[in-house]
Amino acid sequence: MRSYFRQRTMQSAISLFGLVVLVFFLARLTGNPTDLLLPVDTPLAVREEFAARHGFDQPMLVQFGRYLLDLLQFDFGESLRDGRPALQMVLQAFPTTLLLSFWAMLISLVIAIVTGSIAAWRPGGVFDRIASLISLAGASIPNFWIAIVGVLVFSVWLRALPTSGTGTPWHWIMPVTVLFVRPCGVLTQVVRSSMIDALASPYVKTARARGVRSRVVIFGHALRNAMLPVVTVAGDQAAGMVNGAVIAETVFGFPGIGKLMIDSIMFRDFAVIQAAVMVTAVAIFVLNILIDLAYALLDPRVRHG
């Protein structure tokens, strides 16, 4: 297990370095921050002074070298907008997004496991057909549409839910909904199909031939095996939540990392973009390791392989 961690950390380090390079140059492809941040009529001398202060006058490779050196000391630089350390801004926004994703994922999994298992019990039955239709719809509807329609219906027409902010639990309902619908639809379908396979498997037949109770057959034997593909897909969906968070947080003015990223991109706030991308990437690497661990926990064949 320890060699596994060493291996994973080394792989992650290589990928992270690639990401560092990519983010740095891609961000600079989008335009010159000097033009964007300073008023149009700023005198040339002021412009040059601004560029020199932030190092924008240096050759690209020198900028890159300095950026790397700073990174090694966990210094992502300062925000161009308000001068706060970029990392600090990102870490402040991060827990909000984490919590948002956590609730969305938890709700997705609970609904998917319950619905998918019941649907698998009688494939082609009434419940299965309704569940399949709804989950397919959930997996296909774009989340920005849900966000906009949600605001229109619940905030504008019904005036039941707030449109932005994080003050009360009511503020969380719509953002969480926007995030969970899609993973929930996808996961329900995965649970359903892997549960159908598991229930038809020879080991379920063996358990029945032993006189094991139906409840134990379903939860102890079938569901445990059916969870393996679900864990993999849930991991993918969780990583994909960053995309959803960008939309949900932007639409609902939710102060998470997604909104921070969008704002920083609009502003060419390089240091914050870089810090946000790096923190997200590290989070996704950690998530992947957790998923591998969960998988090894569920499947002894992985543990011994």
């Binding site: 020879p202 080991y203 037949k205 063996t206 358990a207 102890g220 034997h221 095996n225 002894p300």
Partner: peptide
Amino acid sequence: MIFQDTLAALNPVH
């Protein structure tokens, strides 16, 4: 009862 394909007939996770 016992079955033919023992790898499939025994639950891999127990």
